[in-house]
Amino acid sequence: MKYNSIRPGQVWLDTEGKRIQAHGGSVITVGDTFYWYGENKEKTKPGSGIWHWGVRCYASKDLYNWEDQGIIIPPDEEDESSPLHPAQYMDRPHIIFNQTTRKFVCWIKVMKRDGTQKSTVLTADHILGPYTMVQSDLRPLNMSAGDFDLVVGPDGKAYYYFERVHSELICADLTEDYTDVTGYYSTHFPNIQPPYVREAPAYFFRKGRHYMFTSGTTGYHPNPSEVAVAKSFHGPWEVLGDPHPYDTSRTSYNSQITSVFRHPFKKDLYIALADRWMPNLPDLAGEDHANGKGYQKTAEIYRRMFEPDTDFVMDEVHYSCDMNTDTSVADYVWLPIRFDGEMAYLDWKEEWRVEDYE
Results as ranks from 00 to 15, higher is better:
residue 4 N to K: 12
residue 7 R to I: 12
residue 10 Q to C: 08
residue 11 V to R: 11
residue 14 D to K: 08
residue 18 K to G: 01
residue 19 R to L: 04
residue 22 A to W: 01
residue 24 G to R: 01
residue 25 G to D: 06
residue 28 I to D: 00
residue 28 I to V: 13
residue 32 D to A: 05
residue 34 F to D: 00
residue 43 K to H: 12
residue 48 S to D: 07
residue 52 H to M: 06
residue 60 S to G: 15
residue 63 L to K: 04
residue 67 E to C: 13
residue 70 G to C: 05
residue 75 P to F: 07
residue 79 D to E: 09
residue 80 E to N: 13
residue 82 S to F: 00
residue 87 A to Y: 14
residue 90 M to D: 05
residue 93 P to S: 06
residue 98 N to S: 13
residue 107 W to Y: 10
residue 109 K to T: 06
residue 114 D to R: 10
residue 117 Q to M: 13
residue 117 Q to W: 05
residue 117 Q to L: 09
residue 132 T to W: 05
residue 132 T to D: 01
residue 143 M to P: 03
residue 148 F to M: 07
residue 151 V to T: 03
residue 160 Y to I: 11
residue 161 Y to V: 10
residue 163 E to Q: 10
residue 166 H to P: 11
residue 173 D to T: 13
residue 178 Y to A: 05
residue 183 G to I: 14
residue 184 Y to T: 15
residue 190 P to W: 14
residue 192 I to P: 14
residue 194 P to T: 09
residue 195 P to Y: 06
residue 206 R to D: 00
residue 212 M to K: 05
residue 213 F to P: 00
residue 216 G to D: 09
residue 220 Y to K: 03
residue 223 N to I: 03
residue 232 S to C: 07
residue 234 H to K: 01
residue 244 H to M: 06
residue 246 Y to W: 15
residue 246 Y to Q: 13
residue 261 F to N: 02
residue 263 H to F: 05
residue 268 D to K: 04
residue 280 N to F: 12
residue 288 D to N: 10
residue 311 D to L: 06
residue 323 M to R: 15
residue 347 D to A: 10
residue 352 W to G: 00
residue 352 W to K: 02
residue 353 R to E: 11
